[in-house]
Design a protein around this nucleic acid. Structure first.
Lengths: 130, 130
DNA sequence: TTCTTACACCTACAGTTGTAGGTGTATTCT
DNA sequence: AGAATACACCTACAACTGTAGGTGTAAGAA
């Protein structure tokens, strides 16, 4: 299983594809295209290229069934997201998680439930450290 | 004053430059180069190009003093960071701030002070909504 | 005065990325 | 059988990005 740290970074369009594949392991070009095409005009070939390059980069693997490729992510979602956020903290926030949270809160309207869940996450993270 | 939403996104290298300029308004090519060069081998011309392109993209403005350009950010840091984080929440976390925080906590070891400060940030954000 | 340094600018290259037309082949539909 | 559909693959283009050599000019140092 690959490590996100050893792989090229993901652009927004690539991340979009990855999220679809994480949501639906073994998905196919056709399925991905149907989903994205329902949101915006995009050529099937564009998706094809994105998939092909993600395979080249090591982010996706596939299993051929007949002539159809079924794609799976080569890296777990959680591991990738952690890596992505860490990179952002390091490169944009000079290592400050607090800085990231501040920017997050500036731009989001948290409802009470969500705020509570986030507090619980922090508490759990803190508890896990003892 | 420009709006980050109307401008091309920033790459990691560009963000690095922006952070230096936000830290030191009116800075010059030479100063930026000295700072980065102390961390790693990089040609002055590379910085020059990064600066020039950031100006082209609208992220930096400059004032010529003699033949030396003094660069300033065209967008406040806070506004940019909020935008950057929002983009990440939208594109990688399907709009879930909680998802981002979970990934953040997975990858960071919060000390007690920091956790407390983050809780306070959340409380303040919540209070500000009433 | 000559040499050195610094600068903005010009130029170039290679890699990356999003976009998509086109093709041969196989399968399915009419 | 012919037409339509789907696929992986080939190909192409333009824009973006990081990297950096080179140049004319001005200012400072020797």
């Amino acid at each position: 299983m690959s490590d996100p740290q050893d792989m090229p970074s993901l652009s927004e369009a690539q991340m979009e594809i990855m999220n679809i594949v994480w949501d639906r392991p073994d998905t196919t070009l056709g399925e991905i295209w149907l989903e994205l095409h329902s949101k915006r005009s995009i050529a099937r070939n564009t998706i094809q290229t994105l998939l092909s390059r993600l395979v080249d980069k090591g982010w996706l693997v596939y299993r051929a069934e007949g002539k159809i490729f079924h794609y799976r992510a080569a890296v777990p979602r959680e591991k990738t997201m952690t890596h992505v956020v860490n990179r952002l903290v390091e490169t944009a926030f000079n290592g400050s998680a607090e800085g990231l949270v501040m920017a997050l809160l500036d731009g989001q309207d948290l409802d009470a439930d969500e705020a509570q869940r986030i507090r619980a996450l922090i508490d759990r993270a803190q508890a896990g450290q003892k």
